[in-house]
Structures are given as structure tokens and as C-alpha cells.
Design a protein around this nucleic acid. Structure first.
Lengths: 340, 340
DNA sequence: GAGTGTACTACAATCGATTGCAGTCGCTGA
DNA sequence: TCAGCGACTGCAATCGATTGTAGTACACTC
């Protein structure tokens, strides 16, 4: 139809004032309206196909029923499940999701977040946090509910929904130790991100805990969480430590870069050197060999971030909580018994 | 800061009426305001950190400066580049992007689209079209600009930004023919989607054009664009036609399912049977062997859909155009000379 | 019968911007 | 000197919902 139906149309049709119609249509105020009047208004609204104008409502209530999510690289398959979880959980409560993609090469990534703030989103979910993130501090003064997802920050205290990296790396290291590996290396992620740093620290802690040698020579940091930096880091690591029989990579892309490095050095993944990854991205199970990877329930992570945000938007003094989701290890062909 | 700055504050600070301040701040009306007054208003706005309230503005102008994008499965890595392209192009024009994910198992996928319409998005980009899509017809009566992306529909005439499936399948079939293959099969996608249907039709057309046999026995439709349905369809195909030396799959997941089927039948991908895929998803290059795949510029597809939507939002009589993006073939180890 | 309390509804202000229209001032030409 | 026109600015209505407040009617009690 051409013209949209407004509350005035509904009120006229039901024979009441717009304020009565508004009260009849809203759950929280319906009880002060006579039941017969309520029935007439609801029937008129349904017949006319009425939907409230979100801008008019939002201007008055100071709520947009939208949340924003900021993703560092929406092309990275890691974020699809997180977005799906967030969108689904928010949708259940009647919220819509504005998405913004910063990307590493964005000229002014902070402007992306500011745009969402100016859009008056009711809350923000940020997947972009770095460990020393100045923008988060600035956002804190804005009094807008924020939840971090996947990574956290050390700059300020904010609610964060994360994977349990300590447990996840533990699964990988223990799995390799159970296969007889003692010379285990780590291709670490960038230490400016909490995911890079925590997986590195977890690796060191688990190696020490299991009585295995971790003196720093068995760790090499990749510049970024991508295949090529993983390849470069893995080569350096294996050149420095040719004795290593297993490598724990801080994510799947680094692991696949490690595959390439192993092959370039004339060895076989899984047979000569075992490799584990992290995230259990789509298709890593179809690699040759399938990648043993720490699986984080990312969709659930997204949903939990949304639920936390919804709680914090309703609360006048939101809790700063940190939730860590329990990972599992998907064991595949890239890990095998230590060669003798 | 606590309270937000409004136009009243800026007007007071600059010593003018709010209407003058509004005109001074807006590009289209600035020219009717005296230059000295403009300078004072701009300076006040900057000093007070003023940003217009989008709801107030939108209520009056009947524009939200938002567009909606509806994705059938945001966890599918295919859609990340499309979203990235859309978000980037819209952002350049000051638009924000609301994202909704329908998912195949959503109880009421149409409600997701209706919610965006009720949100008064200025336009919609739909990646969800099926060939016979009743909701699109309903949406047409709403007078909201729509652009289809990745898939099109036969139900109504709508602008669509697509891959050139005819050219893409042609690249694959010609490549295989050049390698000496004559017995080529097709693992088709679901025919209810334009991508499934068009790639199937393109395959038949190219086989006929090259004088190769395509009698229907060399085609098997997968129920969905996933690995397992691809596996099932590939097995059926190879059981029915054991002579096939090459298979053109309608997307990468079907291709990877075909890999599994080939291996289960004791043969080697690339050596015994060549396989091509479509989309060139992340990680298919790292498969063993790397998948030869038709690469569609999905990020550019998203950006073009956004540009088309922006044009149509500005136009009172938008063109129904169909743009097809030229694919390329990424040649890898999954295709080789026909075995003799 | 009068007074009081409660249920129900209407009135009007409000949110914060945009914009049609009108008033004022200064300049120019007859 | 006066009228007309253009530049500039202010006034007030408007977008469409929500909500504080007030008015009215009816029932109950003394």
C-alpha cells in the first residue's frame, strides 16, 4: 500500500484518542485501558496493518531498539558464527543489529564506532578490542553499554565474552603429550591482541605444568593471524628448533601456514610433525590431513554477548563480568604419535 | 560527557535561532545563511561536539540513512566479502547497515525482512532470493528500493547484481576440455535457486557448444549447497557414469563433497578425476590438491549492489538493471590432464 | 443526598530536528 | 523619496509516537 498507517488512523478507526490507542497497543500500559477498548484498538491496528514508527517512538523513549556490532574483518570466516549468534539472540528481544566492519587498513577505524554511537544504538558489541585500546576508554565516558566479544582489553574493565584460551591450549598440549610429544613449539598470534597473548601464556603455562621444556626458543610470534605470517613464523621456528615434533598454532590460519612450512621442509604433517590449530574454521576438517583444532562455540559466544548486552542495557549499574566459553578439541589427522 | 548536545545548545552558543543553526550545518541549505553566521555555528558545533540526533532528523525527513541486508546464512564464508563490500560502499555515503540473518531453519524468514521494513530502512539488499519468491512480490508494493545480490528471482523484475554464471561455468568447462576431458559431469546446486539453475543451464549450453555429450545422465542435483549433499550427488553421478574423468561442481562445498566421493571410490582427485568448484572460498587453495575454482569478485559484488541501491534510493523511477560480474578461474591441482 | 475514591479516557506537552512562510533590513532604480 | 526586491533570519508547524496530568462518570459509604 502507498501511505503508511499511523496511530492516528488506528485511533480514529477504534473511536478513541491516540493516547488511548498507544496505551492499548503497548504491553506495559494496556492494563489501564478498558478491555473492550483494548479489543477495538487491537482489531483496528490489525485490520489496518499498523506498525509503530520506530523513529517517533525512539525520539520519545530515547531508545532505538538497535545494537551495533563492530567486526575487525567481516571477511574472516571466524566472525560469521559470532554475528549469527548475536543477531539471533538480539532478534528474540526485538532488537535489530547494525553492523560495521573496521578492517585493518581502514583509514580511521574509530570513526566506524563513533558513527554507531551517533546512530544512538542502545548498546555495542565490539570484536575489535586490542589489549591497549584507547577508544574503549573514550567510549566508557559515553555511558553506552558495551560488551567485548572474542577478545578483551587491559585498558579498561568491560564485560567480555571469550573463549577459555587456557583450557583450549591445554587440550592441545595435553593431546600432543599423550601422543608422546615432548618437543613442542608454538606459533603465536600477535601479542597486541588478547587472543595472541593469552594463548601464548597458556602454552608456556601448560608446558611448565607438564614438565616439558619451554624456554622461549620454541615460540615464534606471527605478525598477524593469517596464513602467510604463520608460514613465516613456522619456518623460523623449525629452522631454530629442527628437533620439534609438534607445533601448537594460535589459530587455524597460522596452522595452515605451518602446514606449508612443514611441507616446504620436506616433511609430512601428522606423520613427521604434528600440528594443532585453533577456532575449527569451516573446511579445516577437509584439509589433507584434517586439522586437529580447538573448537570454540562461536555462535554461542555471540549469543551470550548479546544476552549480556541486553542485561546491561536494562541495568543501571551493569556488572563487569567475564564469561569464558569452554572449548573442545576436534582431533583429526594432523596430529599423530611422535615418530621414533 | 553525560548529556548530549542538541541543536538548541549550538544555536544558543552561536547566538542564532535553531532553524538558522540547522541551515548552517547542512550542506544543502548552508548557502542561504550569511558566511559569518555559518562560521559561528560551525565553530560552536565543533566545540560542543554536536552530532544531529538521527531519530529527530529521520522523523522529519522520512529518511533513516540506514539500509538493510538480509543474508540466508551469515555463517557461510561466501557472504563475508559481500557484506564487507556493501558496508564499505554504504559507509562512504553516510549510510549504516542493518543486518538480518534468515537461515534455512528460521521459523518465519519473511518476518526478518518485515522487521527491517518496519525499521524504515531506506533500502534493502537481499541475498535470499529464490527463483519463485512470493515475498519479493509483496515487498514490491511497499515502494521500498530493493536490490538483489548474488541470486535473482523470476517472480518479479528487480535490480540484481550477480556473477556471470554462464561465463564462469564456461571457464571451467573450457579449461577441462583444454586438458583433454570429454566425459565431464556436473554436480548441480538446488534448482530452486537461480545460482543452481543458471550454472546447470550454463553447463549444458557449454557442453553443447563444445560438441561434448550432455544428455542429462551426466548431471546430478544436490539438495543443498553443502559438502554432504555434494558427496551424495557426486557418488550417484559417478555410480551412474563411471566413465567421467571430470566434474564441474556448482560451488566449492559441492566440489569438496565430490573430493570425498572420489576418494571413497578409490580414486585420486586431479589425477584420476578432475574437479572444479565455484566461488573460490577461503582455504580451498590449501586443500590437497588445491581446488580449481571459479572466482567471483564478491566484495565488488557487494559494493556494486550498494551503489545500485544508493542510486535507486535517490531516483523516483529506478531502473531495473542486472549487472553480472566477470569471474576468473583459479587453476590449481584439482584439475589435470585426462588420464590415458 | 452528598462526598469521596477509583476507573477510564482525553488533553497537551514533549522528544529534536527540518522547513514553509513571514518579517526585517538594506540597496537600487525610477 | 518611495517602492520593490533580495538576503538573511526567526517563527512556528510538523514528523509520530509516548506519557504526565486532569477531567468525568460511576459506585460506594455515611
Amino acid at each position: 500500500m502507498g501511505q503508511r498507517t499511523t496511530l492516528k488512523d488506528v485511533a480514529r478507526e477504534a473511536g478513541v484518542h491516540t493516547s488511548t490507542a498507544s496505551r492499548a497497543l503497548n504491553d506495559l500500559t494496556r492494563s489501564v485501558v478498558n478491555a473492550d477498548t483494548v479489543a477495538r484498538v487491537l482489531e483496528a491496528a490489525d485490520r489496518l496493518g499498523y506498525a509503530p514508527h520506530p523513529l517517533a517512538r525512539g525520539l520519545r523513549t530515547n531508545q532505538t531498539m538497535t545494537a551495533g556490532i563492530v567486526i575487525p574483518d567481516v571477511e574472516n570466516p571466524l566472525f560469521g558464527p559470532i554475528i549469527a549468534g548475536v543477531e539471533s539472540a538480539l532478534g528474540e528481544d526485538g532488537y535489530s543489529l547494525l553492523i560495521a566492519n573496521t578492517e585493518r587498513h581502514h583509514p580511521d577505524p574509530d570513526s566506524v564506532i563513533r558513527t554507531l554511537v551517533e546512530r544512538r544504538v542502545d548498546g555495542l558489541i565490539l570484536a575489535t578490542a586490542t589489549r591497549d585500546d584507547a577508544l574503549l576508554e573514550l567510549l566508557m565516558s559515553r555511558d553506552i553499554p558495551i560488551v567485548l566479544v572474542n577478545r578483551t582489553t587491559e585498558r579498561v574493565d568491560l564485560p567480555a565474552i571469550l573463549g577459555d584460551d587456557y583450557a583450549g591450549i591445554g587440550l592441545a598440549v595435553e593431546h600432543l603429550e599423550a601422543l608422546g610429544h615432548v618437543a613442542i613449539g608454538h606459533v603465536a598470534g600477535p601479542q597486541s591482541l588478547s587472543t595472541g597473548r593469552e594463548r601464548h601464556d597458556a602454552f608456556m603455562a601448560w608446558m611448565n605444568k607438564l614438565g616439558l621444556v619451554a624456554d622461549g626458543s620454541n615460540v615464534e610470534e606471527a605478525d598477524w593471524f593469517q596464513v602467510d605470517p604463520g608460514y613465516v613464523a613456522a619456518r623460523k621456528l623449525m629452522q631454530r628448533r629442527p628437533d620439534l615434533t609438534a607445533i601448537v598454532a594460535a589459530n587455524d590460519l597460522l596452522a595452515l601456514g605451518t602446514y606449508k612450512a612443514i611441507r616446504d621442509m620436506g616433511q609430512r604433517v601428522g606423520d613427521d610433525i604434528s600440528v594443532t590449530g585453533y577456532n575449527d574454521m569451516p573446511l579445516v576438517d577437509l584439509m589433507e590431513p584434517g586439522l586437529t583444532s580447538v573448537r570454540v562455540p562461536y555462535r554461542e559466544m555471540g549469543a551470550e554477548a548479546a544476552r549480556r548486552l541486553l542485561l546491561n542495557m536494562r541495568s543501571s549499574s551493569p556488572e563487569v563480568t567475564e564469561v569464558r566459553l569452554t572449548p573442545k578439541l576436534a582431533i583429526r589427522g594432523s596430529t599423530g604419535l611422535v615418530a621414533t
